[in-house]
């Protein structure tokens, strides 16, 4: 039995296979309509989500399976003080696979230690979000034609941005990748990722505090939201929330074939006038999330 807790749980070959299956699902959805008939996914979301939870549920429904679960901790036994271990032990009696989001880092890993069914990390605090990364990789492959030879700008909250952490882990395994890190100094990428991931793998990176400076060299600009829920102190959030904003004026500095990604939801970090730019791919990215999650569910349930 396999779980997906961290993107590094999957080899590059397995990621390529998932992307191939997702592309096949996009081209031939009817082939997959009954692949998970009589299977159930439990979506245990201790933290609010729109896209991730609904895309998991839509993924299972499109595979012919069914869904159960909860969308906030208040409507689960966690509100009564139940541990993750107990919750997961019980839910694994009712479902064939579990997608879990939790506000505490490492919660899905704890779940995987106690579960009798595969656990998918659907986001754990500011730590990791591997299925968003699979979504990102599918989108990059479809839009750029491959995953090698790319200069990737990561902009916004790089400190608590779990999508950024997982994406860096994944992309360092491809050839000739360079990262450009754009954030206010308070929200810089954590040292453990710089040291243990980038420097350890000899992946070059540079750091900027404004988008304009970095823009001309980018093949991909990955925008992130400054997340209010990650701050213990509201004043810090207010001070930093508008520090990196992309608008159509700044897009003039970008290459013609650069793409803009964002895991969504956005607040104001991408102004709506960018949405009509053909380089804005974040809604396509959200759509791709369902297909790659379908591919992942098939893999973890070992459905041929």
């Amino acid at each position: 039995m396999r779980h997906l807790i961290d993107i590094s749980d999957l080899s590059v070959t397995e990621i390529d296979e998932l992307i191939d299956v997702a592309n096949d699902i996009i081209d031939n959805p009817e082939k997959y309509q009954e692949k998970c008939k009589h299977k159930k996914i439990a979506t245990l979301f201790f933290e609010p989500s729109t896209r991730t939870r609904l895309s998991f549920e839509a993924a299972m429904l499109e595979l012919g399976g069914s869904v159960l679960g909860f969308s906030e901790a208040a409507s689960s036994s966690a509100a009564k003080g139940e541990s993750i271990s107990d919750t997961v032990r019980v839910v694994s009696f009712y479902a064939d696979i579990i997608a879990m989001r939790h506000f505490k880092e490492g919660a899905p890993m704890v779940a995987s230690m106690k579960s009798d069914v595969p656990i998918i990390n659907a986001g754990d605090g500011g730590h990791n979000h591997p299925t968003q990364t699979l979504t990102d990789l599918l989108t990059i492959k479809r839009e750029k034609g491959g995953l090698d030879n790319l200069t990737i700008g990561l902009c916004g909250d790089l400190k608590f941005g779990r999508t950024v952490h997982s994406l860096i882990s994944a992309m360092t395994r491809y050839k000739n990748i360079k990262f450009v890190l754009i954030s206010p100094s308070e929200l810089r990428l954590p040292d453990y990722i710089k040291n243990d991931v980038l420097e350890k793998n000899n992946v070059p990176y540079s750091e900027y505090t404004s988008i304009e400076e970095a823009m001309p060299e980018l093949d991909i600009l990955y925008m992130t939201r400054v997340q209010k829920e990650r701050f213990f102190n509201e004043a810090d959030y207010e001070r930093l929330k508008d520090s990196c904003i992309l608008n159509s004026e700044k897009m003039k500095f970008a290459k013609e074939d650069m793409i803009v990604l964002h895991p969504l939801p956005r607040v104001n970090e991408i102004t709506t006038d960018v949405d009509d730019d053909k380089r804005a791919c974040y809604f396509k990215q959200a759509k791709n999330g369902k297909y790659i999650r379908m591919a992942l569910i098939l893999k973890l349930l070992e459905v041929e």
Binding site: S83, I84, S85, H102, F103, K104, E105, G106, A107, M109, V110, D124, G125, G126, H127
Partner: peptide
Amino acid sequence: PRCITSIEQDI
């Protein structure tokens, strides 16, 4: 304080 070890019992 953001780690699951801060709230999970008997971990």
